[in-house]
């Protein structure tokens, strides 16, 4: 492949449109390379957020041919079909300029999630004894690079714009990381049900499909949290058993 046609969305919060660029390609080009080349040679004012170019910083999230992806991890040859390659900003968040969106809402939601309350330390130096087996489960969620592709693809946020009522997959992963921690004592089930709106998730698994870190978001974070909410809110038998035997999901 020697060249490819890119249709890049240009604009701001008020208005915008696709503009066409022809890019000479070099072997191994990813979409971010092409965007940088457009920036360098054809449109110096093209705005694009990026940092590591290695799929680890989560900055260059965009929609390539309509699918949410990291530009730095998408090879041009993989998305080049018959027509031009479209590159546009994430639709779930307000555009700042061109491919850059304002994702600050995510940090506000994250700050609102109940923090961990560690149990009493096991040793005098203030450390805990934890089995690696129990730690591995929440450790999967620490792989998140906060690219917010999962937030972008989730239809509850993307299409229904329920930002005030639904936290989104990234924050359920964050909540699960704390909720499943073996030394955590915080009860965040009521918050998950009410403020974070986990019941709005209807398990389309789109978040899992777009995750560049291959976190099993739906099966390992959201559904287990939904089941814990069911324990507490919807299942009369479990509620009764817990009341009689005083069982807790902690410990």
């Amino acid at each position: 492949m020697k060249s490819a046609t890119f249709k890049v969305w240009r604009g701001d919060r008020e208005a915008g449109d696709f503009q066409t660029y022809e890019v000479e390609l070099e072997p191994g080009y990813v979409v971010l390379d092409a965007i940088h080349k457009i920036q360098a040679e054809q449109a110096n004012d093209l705005a694009c957020r990026w940092n590591c170019k290695a799929g680890k910083c989560g900055s260059c999230s965009a929609e390539i041919n309509g699918s949410p992806r990291l530009m730095c991890m998408t090879r041009v040859e993989d998305v080049a079909g018959n027509g031009p390659i479209t590159v546009e900003p994430m639709r779930t968040f307000p555009v700042i300029k061109d491919l850059v969106t304002d994702v600050s809402w995510n940090y506000e939601v994250k700050a609102s999630i109940q923090k961990m309350t560690p149990r009493e330390p096991d040793f005098e130096d203030g450390s805990w004894k934890m089995h690696q087996y129990d730690v591995e489960r929440p450790q999967e969620f620490r792989k998140c690079i906060e690219c917010f592709l999962c937030q972008n693809v989730c239809h509850v946020l993307r299409d229904h714009q329920m930002h005030g009522e639904f936290a989104g997959p990234r924050h359920f992963v964050f909540a699960a990381q704390a909720e499943m921690n073996p030394i955590d004592l915080t009860d965040r089930i009521p918050q998950l049900r009410e403020e974070l709106g986990i019941g709005y998730c209807n398990i389309t698994k789109c978040c899992t499909k777009v995750c560049p870190e291959s976190i099993t978001i739906t099966d390992n974070a959201i559904i287990p949290l939904k089941e814990r909410v069911v324990d507490r809110s919807y299942d009369p038998l479990t509620k009764l058993v817990r009341r009689i035997f005083g069982r807790s999901d902690k410990g």
Partner: peptide, 16 residues
């Protein structure tokens, strides 16, 4: 939605 990032043909949504 019918598929991921395709769009939902309605506005109202109550989820589960």
């Amino acid at each position: 939605p019918p598929s991921c990032s395709v769009g939902v043909p309605r506005e109202a949504y109550i989820g589960e």
